[in-house]
Structure formats: C-alpha cells, structure tokens
C-alpha cells in the first residue's frame, strides 16, 4: 500500500544528487559532490551499505556496456572515467567549466557531457580516451539524453532543448519548452519526453513528442522541478529541489500531491525500476 510518507532516512555527507544502479543491481550509487563521496545503498530497502571517496561526483552513469563509470565533477571541472567494475580512476578530462549532465551512445563508444558554464556540449571517445568534439550548444546547457540517434540537450538560459548530431556535433533542431529547461527524461514506452523547467518565475514539467519534439502538455510544478521517475501506475514522481518536497503527478489530470522529504531532493529512484529489463538509468525511464 502506498502511504506517501517518508519511511526512513539514510545518511550521506553533504548533498546527495544523482544516482546510478550497479550492473548487478545490488547497489544504488548516490553522488555526494561536496562530500567528495559516492554512497552505496540497498536499492530495495534504502539501507546504507557503504561509501567510496571520489572527487566531486555530481552526475554519474555507467556506459551501456557497464565497462566504465563516468562522473561529471561540476565544481572541479573534471569529467572522470572510472573502471566500471573496480571504480578505479582510468582517465581524467578537463573539457570545460562546470560539467553538468551526461549520457552515452548505445554502443558505449561515446559520452556526451554538457558544460554548464562554458555553454558547450563535449563528446568523449571512450575507446581512445580522447575528446571527439566540443560544440557551442547554447546558454547554460544541463540535461543530456541520447534519443533516436541524436543527442538532446536542455538549455537553461534559452528555455528549451537542442538536438545535436552526435557524429559532427552540429545543432539540427531547437524546441522551446519553458524557462530554465534543466533535465530531460524518456518514459518507459518511449512515447513521451519530459523536460523539467526550473524558472525563473513559473516552473513546470513539459511533455514532448519524442519524434517531432513538439510540446504535448505543460504541467505547472512549483519549487524547481528537477529529476523525475515514473511509477508503474503512471504517476510521475518529481523532485521539487527548492520546496523540500517530492510531487506525485497524475499526468492524465495534471493534479499532484506533495511529500515533504527534507532539504534539496534531487535524483529519484523507485524500487519498481528494479523490475525493468536492460540497463536502468536515471534519464531513460524504462
């Protein structure tokens, strides 16, 4: 039975942000950037299993083949590539200012990392450990998502998303979503893209058609909506960064309830995601 109540709280050092599930699904890794640590929790119970000290992990993710674990160190301007099995540092890149979000090509060859304070999107070749290209994506890029052979990037400063050609790095499309477009997600059936818009002013979640990129509907969500997750009942769980709450949105009606959770909720992992086939990631909600 769902009570929408906090049932337990597990410790971290400072401010936990994004998460990644280990390939064997036994550990939920949570990045604690200012604590310089990666915390490991039981993805079923939330119990703390341990932690590893690594530099400034903000956005994190395993390559689709699980060979590498890539970390965007936003404060320190590093993109660190760790061995996926041992979490030992393999290569450190300094591709721009404030590495923010990341995603990978399905064949695991390339990573795409947004540089929030350089206004660029950078692509790294993980087979040669070299930088492939760096393109001016637009003002203050954040969320990154590989979709249908293209890379979508949220532009906070321009209130929308751009589509980038992953081969040459050219911008092929642009779509307005809302002020402060921050992060982007694809639903389980690959039918809808969601973009969280963090303001200024009215903040919202925009639903888009993943093929045409045209907006389908906008949901006003206060409190700086950030990461989302979709429950099996279709409800969308949304972190309200600046309202210390998680909103649970019914996408049919647009109604939502809120759950007070504590300071700065960021990434959202639902234990039901463990039932998903294939790699479980924060942005591809399948």
């Amino acid at each position: 039975m769902t009570t929408h109540q906090v049932v337990s709280t597990a410790p971290a050092y400072r401010e936990p942000s994004h998460w990644a599930l280990t390939p064997d699904r036994s550990q939920l890794l949570v990045a604690d950037a200012s604590g310089n640590a990666l915390f490991m929790y039981d993805p079923r119970t939330g119990a703390l299993l341990g932690h590893k000290r690594i530099a400034d992990p903000y956005q994190i993710g395993y390559t689709p083949d699980n060979r590498y674990f890539v970390v965007n160190a936003l404060r320190l301007d590093f993109v660190d590539v760790y061995d996926g099995a041992t979490l030992e540092l393999v290569k450190r890149f300094k591709p721009g200012r404030w590495p923010s979000h990341l995603d990978f090509s399905p064949d695991s060859r390339w990573s795409f990392n947004s540089m929030q304070n350089s206004d660029t999107l950078v692509s790294l070749d993980l087979t040669t450990m070299t930088e492939r290209w760096c393109v001016k994506a637009g003002t203050t890029p954040a969320g990154v998502l590989w979709l249908n052979g293209r890379v979508l990037v949220c532009l906070m400063g321009e209130g929308g998303i751009v589509e980038v050609d992953p081969i040459k790095g050219g911008i092929t499309r642009w779509q307005k979503t809302g002020d402060g477009a921050h992060n982007i997600f694809l639903d389980e059936q690959r039918h809808i893209l969601y973009v969280s818009n963090r303001g200024p002013g009215q903040t919202s979640l925009t639903a888009l058609d993943p093929i045409t990129l045209k907006p389908i509907r906008a949901y006003p969500i206060p409190g700086g909506p950030d990461d989302i997750a979709i429950a099996p009942d279709g409800k969308i769980w949304i972190a309200q960064r600046f309202a210390e709450s998680v909103a649970v949105l019914d996408p049919e009606t647009g109604d939502y309830t809120t759950i007070p959770v504590g300071r700065s909720p960021h990434g959202i992992f639902l234990s039901t995601m463990l039932k998903q086939k294939g790699q479980v990631t924060a942005e591809r909600l399948r």
């Binding site: 002013g201 903040t203 206060p222 700086g224 210390e244 709450s245 300071r263």
Partner: peptide, 14 residues
C-alpha cells in the same frame, strides 16, 4: 526548515 526553503524558493524564482 521547510517553510524557510519555500520562502527562499519564491524569493529565488521571482
């Protein structure tokens, strides 16, 4: 603490 965050959030957004 939550009340302060909500006030700060409005101040931030607007």
């Amino acid at each position: 603490d939550r009340l302060f965050s909500i006030i700060a959030g409005y101040m931030d957004q607007w």
